[in-house]
Write a protein that binds this DNA or RNA. Structure first.
Length: 519
RNA sequence: GCGGGUGUAGCUCAGUGGUAGAGCGUCACGUUGCCAACGUGAAAGUCGAGGGUUCGAGUCCCUUCACCCGCUCCA
């Protein structure tokens, strides 16, 4: 195993454009920040990844911890849900955090993390600010920590020592008072902006004559809630019993503060989410099951190098629904733009019974589940493996990108055959002498049986191999003069460049063996 | 949101005030007959967009958009 090296994101992006994997959205109008389109090869690659996920999570999930079957069903819910869904889920409150910028230090803070004490400086009253995420009690500790710091400049130190009074929220100050506030990382007062709201959800209007006041709705910021609000429907109609899971893929939308890093942080993106419902006592066991199986799944698609890792969250970074749960972890990939760091591909978290309980409370509909085997009633706990489909595609593109100065294309895409957009190519060595007829017949046979099959009779054979290298096609079958006499063809392997002769009528079997369940 | 950089053909880039260019790729024809071969030819550009200065702007100025990098943010 060679040392991981940093690939050039610029080169990967150039190839994505050149070969039709990814285009900038609305490109002819100058593009739109945070939006990307998939070209012909990218669309197929993304579909292959989505299909592999569905096949391995819904249709044929890994065996249960104690052996035996795991019950999984699929769902496809709306992008626009009732606005109350997002009040219940916490997104209306949580996605509207007011933020404060510091003009001097260029830092940005959540307004509700800023706590204020007053002091009297040379120019009159000054307000000091400290940073504390937990609330007023934690702010008290934060002041103590500030006083123990050795790098506080003298004038500020003088203010700090005499700062007094109870902690007040920054958001409670008047505009005049804010002008006298000394930011946590500033040297002079008045560098902080007013709190500005950040609406991470996309608002929209339902109804052709709707107005913003009465008909406001949101594009979903996650697919998960569509599953939770259908929990009862699935239980009542699908003959599933706890433990079981509901899976869904689909678009989600977030007004990211800073879309960045190619498709990694997009404002429109696709998720692949599972909500797995289980008894509270079994949450830890199922958490471990999904965490380990999801990691193994990404490995099985070719992200098998040191570029993939599992990271358990620390207690202090857990989301509101996951505190004190069975665990939360990220499956992370080392992207060129995060190198040597990692970026999140999938999060596996124990959401406890938070969501079902919230919806029960807000809707008034009972979400508890009667377990007939145990004769007990409870609201199930949830283990959520939530993967980013577009991030998965990006990781596959980055992992596959393999520079090779020795070959004509200088680079090839080493996709796992299962997710490679083009499964195989068929070439007549020469576009005459009966070869095209045989090649076209083979192409038709393969297309009837497998996914995307490329046919190319143009230009030299070397160029055609090189084109397939950049597209990441794993196998090329070439019909030559010998085929016409003995019905054999050559197979050219993308990764080894080796060729072998096999019988024409063995090609279908050859491909089927190597593509496995993927077609 | 702040700072830095970039933006010219599908891709990589040259072009410092005076006719829009090259290499590669793409396409056609010929030749070749297993790794971007060769020959001839062709298509392809709102020079990111808008405004200004100028006799004249790809080039200078202003504004704006997009992408990359560093902060920031990331339920």
């Amino acid at each position: 195993m060679s040392e991981p090296t940093k690939k050039s994101m610029d080169e990967i992006m150039a190839l994505c454009k050149r070969r039709g994997f990814v285009f900038q959205a609305s490109e002819i109008y100058g593009g739109l920040n945070g939006f990307w389109d998939y070209g012909p090869l990218g669309a197929q690659l993304k579909k292959n990844l989505r299909d592999a996920w569905w096949a391995d999570c819904v249709l044929n999930p890994p065996a249960a911890p104690g052996g035996g079957d795991v019950a999984m069903v699929g769902l496809d819910t709306c992008i626009i849900q009732h606005p109350k869904v997002w009040e219940a889920s916490g997104h209306v409150a949580g996605f509207n955090d007011p933020m404060v910028d510091c003009r001097e230090s260029k830092k940005r803070y959540r307004a509700d993390h800023l706590w204020v004490r007053s002091a009297t400086g040379l120019d009159g009253q000054v307000f000091l600010v400290c940073l504390a995420a937990g609330g007023a009690e934690e702010a008290n500790d934060a002041w103590g920590a500030m006083k123990r710091r050795k790098d506080v400049p003298g004038p500020i130190w003088d203010l700090l020592v005499q700062a007094s009074g109870t902690d007040r929220a920054y958001t409670d100050l008047s505009p005049e008072q804010r002008a006298a506030v000394l930011g946590p990382d500033a040297s002079k007062p008045g560098s902080l902006t007013d709190p500005r709201p950040f609406n991470l959800m996309f608002p929209t209007i339902v109804g052709a004559t709707g107005d913003w006041e009465t008909n406001k709705a949101y594009l979903r910021p996650e697919t998960a809630q569509g599953i939770f609000v259908n929990f009862k429907n699935v239980v009542d109609t699908s003959r599933v019993r706890v433990p079981f899971g509901i899976a869904q893929t689909g678009k989600a939308f977030r007004n990211e503060v800073t879309p960045r890093n190619f498709t990694f942080r997009s404002r429109e993106f696709e998720q692949m989410e599972i909500e797995f419902f289980c008894r509270p006592e079994d949450a830890r066991e199922w958490y471990v099951y999904w965490r380990d199986n999801r990691l193994a799944w990404w490995r099985s698609l070719g992200l098998a190098s040191d570029n993939l890792r599992l990271r358990e969250h620390d207690a202090d970074e857990l989301a509101h629904y996951a505190k004190e749960g069975a665990g939360t972890s990220d499956i992370e990939y080392r992207f060129p733009f995060t190198f040597p760091g990692f970026g999140e591909l999938e999060g596996v978290s124990h959401r406890s019974d938070f969501d079902l309980r919230q919806h029960q409370q807000h809707s008034g509909v009972k979400m508890d589940y009667f377990d007939q085997e145990r004769n007990e009633r409870y609201i199930p706990h949830v283990i959520e493996p939530s993967a980013g489909l577009d991030r998965g595609v990006l990781a596959l593109l980055c992992e596959a990108y393999t520079p090779d100065p020795e070959r004509a294309s200088k680079v090839y895409m080493k996709f796992h055959p299962r997710i490679a957009p083009i499964k195989a190519a068929v070439f007549p060595l020469v576009n005459k002498d009966g070869m095209p007829e045989v090649a076209e017949r083979l192409r038709n046979d393969l297309r009837a049986r497998f996914s995307m099959i490329e046919y190319d009779a143009k230009q030299s054979i070397g160029k055609r191999y090189a084109r397939m290298d950049e597209a990441g096609c794993p196998f090329c079958f070439t019909i030559d003069g010998e085929t016409l006499t003995d019905n054999s063809v050559t197979v050219r392997d993308r990764d080894t460049l080796s060729q072998e002769r096999i019988a024409l009528d063995a090609v279908v079997g050859y491909l089927a063996d190597r593509l496995g369940s993927a077609r």
